[in-house]
């Protein structure tokens, strides 16, 4: 366990020491919050709360995809990576450390969104529901973490950057994270239930707002995505091991 924490600390130090990386993952959710949520939904308590939940999901999703997708691909390209494999530890501490560091980064990226919501909108949540919301956020970020790991282990870093962006944007828009939670455009209504971003955000909505309950089809699809992404991540990791370390 101490070793897991050592890996988590190492990952976090690497990220925090490069401030642009942190700013990148906190800026977009905060900016989207200021430009889309505050002017359009800020006065409506439930609307603002749901929109804030959407933005935290957006932040969690981008952090997971980018830190794992691009981070893993870049680490694999470094000669430091084979060195770590000569240390007396299996892959688990490193994996677990990375996940913990990813969750911490999600926590960091969510803070500006919550501050903006508290100061500039009518969004309201009880402390208990806030905690529930954060737990839902952590759970909802799992499929994106796994997708990120798949990309990171399957692709070289330049390709990983492109593919991460290709995956990220349609998921965010298609899942309805950037449109009104109450009255989304028709095409989003049609595709959203089948995207994991929708499942993740509905988890968070349910946690923070008593008015909302999740749609069964969305939850099933979230489970399907999580299982599929998990299988893909294991496949990519094993394949990478076989190619580079057989």
């Amino acid at each position: 366990m101490a070793l897991v924490l050592a890996h988590a600390k190492y990952q976090l130090l690497e990220q925090i020491r490069i401030p642009m990386a942190v700013i990148g993952s906190t800026f977009f959710p905060a900016a989207a919050m200021l430009f889309f949520v505050v002017p359009f939904a800020g006065d409506h308590p439930v609307g603002a709360t749901l929109a804030t939940a959407s933005m935290t999901t957006f932040a969690a999703m981008s952090t997971s995809l980018f830190t794992f997708g691009i981070g893993v691909a870049e680490d694999r390209a470094q000669p430091w990576d084979p060195y770590l494999r000569t240390l007396p530890a299996g892959p688990f501490p490193r994996f677990a450390g990375r996940i913990i560091a990813g969750l911490a980064m999600i926590g960091v990226s969510v803070v500006p969104v919550l501050i903006i919501a508290a100061v500039f909108t009518e969004a309201a949540v009880t402390p208990l529901r806030l905690l529930l919301g954060l737990a839902a956020l952590a759970a909802g970020s799992v499929p994106f973490t796994l997708l990120g790991l798949t990309i990171g282990y399957a692709l070289p870093s330049k390709a990983a950057i492109a593919v991460t962006q290709l995956v990220f944007f349609p998921m965010a828009v298609g899942g309805g994270l950037l449109s009104s939670p109450v009255d989304p455009p028709a095409f989003i209504q049609a595709i959203a239930p089948y995207l994991p971003s929708r499942g993740a955000v509905e988890l968070v909505w349910t946690a923070v707002a008593p008015e909302v309950s999740p749609a069964p089809v969305t939850m099933v699809m979230l489970a399907v995505w999580t299982a599929a992404a998990g299988a893909a991540a294991v496949w990519a990791y094993r394949r990478d091991e076989g190619v580079r370390f057989s």
């Binding site: 070793l3 050592a6 190492y10 130090l13 000669p79 430091w80 000569t86 240390l87 007396p88």
Partner: peptide, 30 residues
């Protein structure tokens, strides 16, 4: 591998870490 030591290529050392932190991190494995 507990009682062996190997050398990373210096180009791969984690640039953002301090020297002491890097040693601490490797030490945590032993």
């Amino acid at each position: 591998r507990v009682r062996i030591g190997t050398t990373p290529q210096e180009t791969g050392l984690p640039q953002a870490l301090r020297v002491g932190e890097c040693v601490d991190f490797v030490s945590a494995h032993y």
